[in-house]
Design a protein around this nucleic acid. Structure first.
Lengths: 224, 224
DNA sequence: AAGAGACCTGAATCGGGTCTCATGTCTTGC
DNA sequence: GCAAGACATGAGACCCGATTCAGGTCTCTT
């Protein structure tokens, strides 16, 4: 066995695939951007490493210097998208005065992201079948923020104290997802282009629905 | 070119693949049942025709006498599951007296189906990525029933007339889906077994949420 | 200017999938 | 009891994708 081959290390980057130089950093970024594009266009299973590397303008083998395989890039992508969705929601909520309108603003932030990147949000949902743990992480992170907002709102009397914050948070998130799917991902104009934003009437209807669901019930019949 | 080969027709069943005899009928059923099993266990892309035919105990070629390919069986399966989910919901709603409790019962029917066949409901959701049109059909059919129920309830004054029935129906369905996912598909006991049914407390919380969302608002301030 | 890493490459290997088709077997009508 | 369809079969043609690897190239540092 040879003691000191000139080509010992097929993967000179750090073992985890992290680049050590800015040149490597750039290549890694190109792969990730190409993966985003290809997964969004084709879905996980139609996408292939070849297509990703071609789109990135690099050699096939280069991919494996930075990632273990298709699944790993996909997961990294979903985690990144999760960050971006939550940022969009947080930004939208920033200006809200009371709690109920903060919830409403959160939905608008979510819808804004989905409208801006319809295909990307589909990538996130596909994680249910590609990497369930990652999807769990995605939803759980969003719900956490939601839930603590609801608790705080209950403490201030803005939200019905009888509602369980966790169940309510999941229910609201599900409502937002299907509304986004129905009115943003499915709706196409004559040219097949997706709408630029959620129709105002739908936003209003959703706001009404949320307000109904969350507001403390006006006492409908007196104690006697 | 020969005029009358003894083996002209490689597909003697009717062109659409419908069997003409009860023997063929039975085989077709075996394939469908096997497909249900395999798709539920492995998901669409891990599933293969070979695995399906093996599970059905038939030859590989036989599959193609009845179906055009993997996608077609999958779609047929989703449509069948849609029927079964709606039947479960309809049965649960049958006994309800007023409209609001009918909505609640519908959810219970949905949860019952999901709890009884967790993997199957995942198959339905995977249709989003395998056959979007079929998923659309699935959701649309469920929403239609929902929506007309809401309209009727509004006419009777049981549901807030300011709510848009369509948007509300989609929102409610989305809420049900995520609650089902969170508390039925994700929850596992120590042995990794899924819960046999939705926890009563979650059902109660959901019922409260729905009642809040739908009930006509008690007038909070008078008209003047 | 030369050596040492870091980085890049794509032909080749390997595995697994779909679908066809030439050749059966079963069942029914007569 | 024997055609004539209906039905069944699985080897093989064909395709495509993931991953490896032996051999480059690029860019610093001294």
């Amino acid at each position: 066995m040879s003691v000191a081959d000139p080509h010992i290390d097929p993967r000179p980057l750090s073992a985890a695939g992290k680049p050590l130089t800015s040149r490597g950093e750039a290549t890694r970024g190109r792969i990730l951007a190409a993966a985003e594009h290809v997964f969004a266009e084709l879905g996980y299973h139609e996408a292939s490493i070849v297509k990703i590397t071609e789109h990135a303008g690099i050699g096939l083998g280069t991919f494996y210097l930075y990632f273990d395989g298709k699944q790993q890039v996909f997961e990294e992508l979903v985690i990144d998208l999760n960050r971006r969705v939550r940022r969009s929601m947080a930004e939208a909520m920033a200006g809200a005065t009371d709690r109920i309108s903060a919830e409403r603003a959160g939905f608008e932030g979510f819808f804004r992201f989905t409208a801006a990147h319809p295909a990307l949000y589909r990538v996130v949902r596909e994680a249910e079948f590609v990497s369930p743990e990652t999807l769990r992480l995605h939803y759980t992170r969003i719900v956490e923020g939601y839930e603590s907002g609801l608790r705080a709102a209950q403490a201030e009397g803005d939200v019905d104290p009888a509602l369980d914050p966790e169940v309510t948070a999941w229910a609201l998130m599900g409502a937002g997802e299907l509304i986004g799917m129905r009115y943003l991902l499915w709706e196409r104009d004559a040219d097949g282009a997706p709408p630029a934003e959620m129709p105002a009437s739908v936003v209003e209807d959703m706001a009404r629905f949320i307000r109904n669901a969350l507001s403390p019930r006006a006492r409908t019949e007196g104690p006697a």
